[in-house]
Structure formats: C-alpha cells, structure tokens
C-alpha cells in the first residue's frame, strides 16, 4: 500500500459464485494478465452483498472495492443482481457524503464466458484508483467507524 514513489492500490473484490467468479477463473485458464491489485472474496450472489462489507473493506485500508455479478437478467438466482443495483445506489449516496469518489467503489457484470471483460475491468479500475491515490480511511476519518454502528445493532 504505502509507497516509495509508486502506489499500488489494493482493491477488494466481491464476486458472485456463478458468473463473475467463473469469469475470473476463465481469465486464469486463458492466461489473461491483469494487475495484481485485486483481492477477491466469493459470495454466492451479489444479492448477498451487505453494504457493511464494502465499508469494512475500506475501513481496513482498501483503496477500492469492486463488486461483480451476473449480467442483469442472468443472475443464477433470477434477480439477486437487481437487489444489488438498488443497494448499490444507496451505498453510493452514503459514500459520496463521506467524500469517497465514485471510482473507488464500482459495480460491474461479467458472465462466466467473459474472462476478457473481467480482466479489463480490473485493469481499468486499477488505473482509475492510481490516479486518485490512496484512500487512507483511518487517517482521513479517524472517528468514522460505520462497522462499530453495525456491531451495536448486531449485538
């Protein structure tokens, strides 16, 4: 993360099991190179994406979060990605209020056959975040801990 001149972003990925995770697998089996910036987590469907996950990743130091699922209309569970779209809109509003740039948290689609699209998405997002520089949540929002609030609810 931290840099001596060059900044390599860390992007946390949330990939749905059926399309985008397989797109990432296909990018692998087809040996399509892309920057080693993405650290991905598998969820069954983007419908499972609790916005808290995104906040947690940022708060733990991620410079960006990439959520990827099946194309609209092709969710393995029919409509999980439509739920994700709605939650994403809300999340984006919250993030904007904190001054977090739109490019840092992105929602994209890739079918299991779209290894190229997957690799390109990661490469493009990496470039965008390089332009923005590190997010440095802990330094910028030392008192802002959304997870603490969530945990209180959860107790």
């Amino acid at each position: 993360m931290s840099d001596n001149g060059t900044f390599t972003p860390v992007i946390v990925g949330f990939l749905c099991n059926w399309c985008s995770y397989r797109a990432a697998d296909l990018a692998g089996t087809s040996r399509m190179g892309y920057p080693a910036t993405l650290r991905d987590i598998r969820i069954m469907c983007t419908g499972r994406l609790d916005p808290t996950f995104v906040l947690r990743a940022l708060q733990k130091g991620a410079d960006g979060v990439l959520i990827m699922g099946c194309h609209p209309g092709q969710c393995h569970y029919q409509e999980g990605n439509y739920k994700a779209i709605r939650r994403f809109a809300l999340l984006r509003r919250t993030l904007r209020q904190l001054g977090i740039e739109d490019e840092r948290v992105q929602l994209h689609w890739a079918s299991a056959a779209e290894g190229v699209r997957f690799a390109e998405t990661v490469a493009r997002m990496t470039e965008q975040i390089k332009q923005l520089g590190p997010l440095d949540w802990p330094r910028n929002w030392p008192n802002e801990d959304p997870y603490a609030v969530e945990e209180a609810v959860h107790e």
Binding site: I41, I43, M44, C45, D50, F53, Y77, G80, K83
Partner: peptide, 27 residues
C-alpha cells in the same frame, strides 16, 4: 442466494457457510 440475509434489518437471518462473521473475518 443470501438476498434475504443481506436485507434483514434485524440481522437475524443466517446464510449458512456465508455468514456475516465469516465474510467479515475474510475481509
């Protein structure tokens, strides 16, 4: 799919093998 798990405002739905604790720990 876990859609309900992410939506429950009381956080009382558990998605087996993809629980809140498991994914938070993974992050």
């Amino acid at each position: 799919c876990g859609t309900c798990v992410a939506a429950c405002p009381s956080q009382v739905i558990t998605g087996a093998h993809f629980t809140f604790e498991q994914i938070m720990a993974e992050i």
